[in-house]
Write a protein that binds this DNA or RNA. Sequence first.
DNA 1: GCTTAATATACCGTTGCGCTTATATAATCC
DNA 2: GGATTATATAAGCGCAACGGTATATTAAGC
Lengths: 110, 110
Amino acid sequence: MDVFEAVAEPTRRAVLDLLAGRERSAGELVAAFPALTQPAVSRHLRILRESRLVDVRVDGARRMYSLRPDALAELDRWLDTYRRFWAGRLDRLAGHLDAKTGGGREEDTT
Amino acid sequence: MDVFEAVAEPTRRAVLDLLAGRERSAGELVAAFPALTQPAVSRHLRILRESRLVDVRVDGARRMYSLRPDALAELDRWLDTYRRFWAGRLDRLAGHLDAKTGGGREEDTT
DNA sequence: GCTTAATATACCGTTGCGCTTATATAATCC
DNA sequence: GGATTATATAAGCGCAACGGTATATTAAGC
């Protein structure tokens, strides 16, 4: 599943929001969604793993999940094409981000 | 349908890419996807309309579609939370974006 | 007014996602 | 080792999204 689809799911975005603060165990994440069962959350975690949005660290019987923003950077790069439409004057900032993630573009020749 | 789901569909992203260059008629967009039928593309356009990602201008019998980036800005705001994870040294730039979207110093806030 | 062109909607079939229950795997505790 | 805890996978189901064919709607040309 690609990053766009992974992020399209509200529960998965909520998981990412939780992980933005600090790493959490699978159990903590399950507890954060009382409306869902443990397997349901576990499946979401799998999808986030497979789309490289989160990282897992084994800690005994626990799996500690943390954010892995590379994939989100991909989203950001995609948005870059459109950013000029609502923030033309911030183009050079976008250029900066690009230079960091992609190795440099020719766009900010201002 | 929310913006995240709207953008999750590859065809719809391709439509946005086409519209990033210039506005196009529905017919042009249909022609751009030979693998799809006219109703299929029309349905995608409806979804893009309803999620406020595109604008329509009636021109006789034609409907001219154009990009409407407000909704993409929403995506960008969401990403802002995570931007620090891959561009920590660009925090102040993210701060800039924040000030633009949430600070209310601008005159064209919608 | 009738025909053609441009676009949208209705309807239906298929498929994939997300959920639940049940079960497997692996680590910890006694 | 057996029980318990933590997490993942399997199987099955319901629903919503996407695609196609057929049809409606609206504009243009004659």
